[in-house]
């Protein structure tokens, strides 16, 4: 999932050093590194002049920020209303059984991280699972099993 495309210095230089760009910086660091490490958080504090406690507060308030390294494959299960009515929770339960970790956690082999998301806006495809940014429509436990097997092997 991580696309090491920019160095941390390069990211820090993208925006003026003011508190309003804090979220931009956190987003860009996460995009490049997959998560925000304590070291990169310290650099962001220095750049924006925001105290570390407040940067940490922002990073934990918003759901999209990750503070630990993520699995190679990112599985997001949509639990929007349409997906809920059509069995999204069943997919979540199955992932928990299969991967043996809680939502938001990463499997010990660092292969998979799975989370639920609140509506990806693709309700006609319910229940939807998004794996590594690709949408899988009308997911069933069977289809999911196949997909996970395929990803485990590469």
């Amino acid at each position: 999932m991580t696309t090491q495309e920019a160095s941390i210095d390069e990211i820090l230089e993208r925006y003026p050093g003011s508190p309003e760009y804090l979220i931009f910086l956190l987003q860009d660091v996460q995009k490049s590194y997959g998560y925000i490490s304590p070291d990169s958080m310290q650099l962001i504090c220095d750049r924006t002049g925001v105290p570390e406690s407040q940067v940490y507060s922002v990073a934990t308030f918003y759901q999209s920020f990750r503070l630990e390294p993520q699995g190679e494959h990112d599985i997001k299960v949509c639990l929007g209303t349409a997906c809920h009515l059509k069995g999204g929770q069943r997919i979540m339960d199955e992932l928990k059984r299969r991967l043996q970790v809680e939502p938001g956690e990463t499997t010990p082999d660092m292969k998979f991280t799975y989370t639920s998301v609140n509506c990806v806006g693709a309700c006609a495809l319910a229940p939807v699972v998004v794996i590594d940014d690709e949408y899988y429509p009308s997911t069933t436990v069977k289809k999911l099993e196949k997909q996970i097997k395929a990803l485990s092997q590469d």
Binding site: M41, S53, T60
Partner: peptide
């Protein structure tokens, strides 16, 4: 004027703490 602590997380998970919930020299 130090902001050594802040609220962490949100909603029912909200708590008070220092960054990374570790003691801080700040």
């Amino acid at each position: 004027g130090l902001a050594a602590i802040s609220t962490v997380d949100r909603g029912v998970h909200k708590k008070v703490g220092a960054p990374f919930l570790r003691p801080t020299e700040v």
